[in-house]
């Protein structure tokens, strides 16, 4: 069994924009081990969200090979890839992205909807996960009846309810105050300690202290340049 959770080999991604080709990713090669927690930092337009969507089996690269837990995900059919996302990945989107007309409990149950588990089992699993993130007493509330931090916790519960080995988070603390942001980061840290691999895109340098490794992206490439790190940490454009 492979020890590598994410393996990127020479990943390139180009978009066509107004007739011109824009290179969003330029030859990205990266390995992330199982159980690792990695934060990806970079300025806007550096390619970190594109990288996350490619790793999330949502956006095929123009070239290169990407394997998650040894599976070449873009060799899978569209429908198999949907199954893969359900079984292997837990997404935590920017701005929580809860379904507004479903309760916290129902939102968390969503990834289980298309599984063959019984309704009782789905309900119990969702309830248990909500308890784990500290929302056991608010499961019947709609998203607009919850605070930002609570909505983020629901989003995290939804990402982990299916017990995926990999969590992909895009700016999970972007719209939270510092105290709540720290609580959420502690939750990610805890999940990582429980064995989940966590890959997080963030602008906030403070978040990196909760993660095992930080990767810097600049102009669609990974950067090891110290100056770039300083720039990103001090939130200045290089």
């Amino acid at each position: 069994m492979s020890e590598i959770m994410i393996s990127l080999k020479d990943i390139r991604k180009t978009y066509k924009s107004m007739g011109d080709e824009v290179e969003a990713l330029k030859s990205v090669t990266l390995d992330i081990k199982k159980g690792e927690s990695v934060s990806v930092m970079g300025h806007s337009g550096s390619g970190k969200s594109t990288l996350l969507s490619i790793i999330g089996a949502l956006n095929p690269p123009t070239s290169g090979i990407i394997e998650i837990d040894g599976i070449d995900i873009y060799k899978l059919s569209q429908e198999k890839r949907a199954d893969f996302r359900r079984e292997y990945l837990g997404f935590v989107f920017q701005q929580f992205q809860l379904i507004p007309y479903l309760t916290a409990h129902e939102n968390v149950m969503l990834p289980l909807t298309t599984t063959k588990r019984s309704n009782k089992e789905k309900r119990e699993m969702a309830e248990e996960v909500l308890c784990r993130v500290g929302l056991g007493n608010k499961i019947k509330r709609l998203p607009n009846q919850l605070s930002g931090g609570e909505q983020e916790r629901v989003a995290i519960a939804r990402a982990i309810v299916n017990e995926p080995p990999l969590i992909l988070a895009d700016e999970p603390t972007g719209s939270l105050d510092t105290k709540t942001g720290d609580e959420i980061m502690e939750l990610f840290q805890k999940l990582n300690e429980e064995g989940l691999t966590v890959l997080m895109v963030t602008h906030n340098p403070d978040n990196t202290s909760y993660m095992g490794r930080t990767i810097l992206m600049k102009d669609g490439q990974l950067s090891l340049d110290e100056e770039d790190f300083v720039s990103v940490y001090s939130n200045k454009k290089v």
Partner: peptide, 16 residues
């Protein structure tokens, strides 16, 4: 669109 994107991202098939 956004909602459908979330559904697809968390593992809903096209048929779903």
């Amino acid at each position: 669109t956004r909602e459908i994107g979330i559904f697809r991202a968390i593992g809903f098939r096209r048929t779903h």
